[in-house]
């Protein structure tokens, strides 16, 4: 028997919205420690890895490892019926062919029950090694979303170059070119809200090119976290990570574009 509950069901709805445009179906691997999901887009250029810890749930029980094969668009149709402040419970039998989703309003005046048919999904999983990155940038997630959205109107490839002073996003296209630089925040602003700062950890300067359409896809997770962390290495996939307090994190990996 697997069951878990979130006080803020809305968080789960945002999680599904953050993955459903990149991968259509996926296996939620549930074990005693939490829920994980990994999915790749069809061209194997981008990968999303979700890691939810049991500590982030108000209730969590997983007697035996359970794999829930889910079509995210179908699940999203059911989650759409959930109230913004509803509590969400998920239940699945060990060998069941469906999973139940229960939404309960704060005052329990409204309770909704949905049963989602599960799928058998044979999914290729990639081994993502823990990597030491040359440059790690933490910045406001809304700022990153805006840069990706605005620059994609000028070019389809963004060059991200990082020095210890600043991170620069550059694009070029038919109409011309442009770049936006964010300077590292002064560490002195002890008053400033940390989530508004730009922090750069640099081992050595890095410059890499990425397709903006994937980055714009990743920024669908902006609602999950006030900050986003970008990790870059020379000729390495970019890691874009949104941490959700004690619930866990959603990480997106994007293969670089290499100049011929």
């Amino acid at each position: 028997m697997f069951e878990c509950a979130l006080i803020q069901g809305e968080l789960f709805r945002k999680l599904i919205a953050s993955v459903q445009d990149l991968v259509q179906d996926g296996n939620f691997m549930c074990d005693a420690n939490g829920i994980s999901l990994q999915g790749m887009d069809s061209s194997h250029v981008a990968l999303v890895a979700l890691a939810l810890k049991k500590e982030g749930f108000v209730e969590y029980r997983c007697d035996r490892d359970v794999t829930l094969g889910i079509n995210f668009a179908n699940l999203a149709k059911m989650l759409k019926c959930m109230g913004a402040k509803d509590r969400l419970s998920i239940r699945a039998q060990d060998e069941g062919d469906s999973a139940s989703f229960v939404f309960e309003s704060e005052d329990s005046s409204r309770v909704s029950n949905f049963e989602l048919k599960l799928m058998q999904i044979d999914q290729e999983q990639l081994g993502v090694p823990e990597t030491q990155y040359k440059a790690v940038i933490r910045m406001p997630s809304s700022e990153f979303q805006r840069i990706c959205k605005d620059l994609s109107a000028i070019g389809d490839t963004v060059s991200i170059s990082v020095t210890k002073e600043a991170v620069k996003f550059s694009v070029g296209g038919d109409i011309g070119s442009g770049d936006m630089s964010l300077r590292q925040s002064e560490s002195g602003d002890v008053d400033g809200d940390d989530s508004e700062k730009v922090m750069i950890e640099l081992e050595e300067p890095v410059q890499q090119n990425f397709a903006l359409r994937y980055l714009n896809n990743f920024t669908k997770a902006t609602a999950l976290s006030k900050t986003v962390t970008l990790s870059l290495g020379t000729d390495m996939p970019l890691v874009t990570e949104y941490k959700m307090d004690n619930l866990g994190s959603i990480r997106y990996y994007l293969a670089p574009k290499i100049d011929e």
């Binding site: 061209s43 999983q125 993502v128």
Partner: peptide
């Protein structure tokens, strides 16, 4: 001209 790499060049299938 820059060519789009795939993740399979960096991560191996498990």
């Amino acid at each position: 001209k820059s060519s789009q790499k795939r993740l399979d060049s960096y991560f191996k299938l498990i």
